[in-house]
């Protein structure tokens, strides 16, 4: 399983981010949003069927988060820490390899 492209960023941000107010309220740490796990918003969850995947990269390309990255073999990996469950990936998948199922919590 490939690693999230944000793994290093999460570590960096957790180490550096502070609430200490700066003159002009400048946000000094780029990409610090990564510690905000938006996956908790999700109602529907994309489920992936690798057998149907043709590795067309459409789901990866169209994810607005981005919460889909690619593994070593170019299959999509769904990052449930961030996936808000919009369903674009399932809607765009040409082989119906992705289906949206209700999140069980």
């Amino acid at each position: 399983m490939a690693e999230s492209p944000f793994k290093a960023d999460i570590e960096r941000v957790e180490k550096e981010l502070t609430e200490k107010m700066t003159p002009g309220a400048i946000a000094y740490i780029p990409g610090s949003s990564v510690i905000n796990k938006t996956g908790s918003w999700r109602v529907f969850k994309p489920e992936f069927n690798k057998d149907k995947c043709i590795r067309c990269f459409l789901c990866y390309t169209y994810c607005p988060e981005p919460a889909i990255y690619l593994d070593e073999e170019n299959y999509p990996v769904f990052d449930y820490d961030y996936c808000k469950g919009c369903g674009i990936c399932a809607n765009e998948c040409p082989t119906k390899a992705i289906t949206m199922v209700r999140e069980v919590k």
Partner: peptide, 13 residues
Amino acid sequence: ENFYAGHTACQGC
């Protein structure tokens, strides 16, 4: 990627 996840856009924005 230079646009980072964890942003607060609505679903499907």
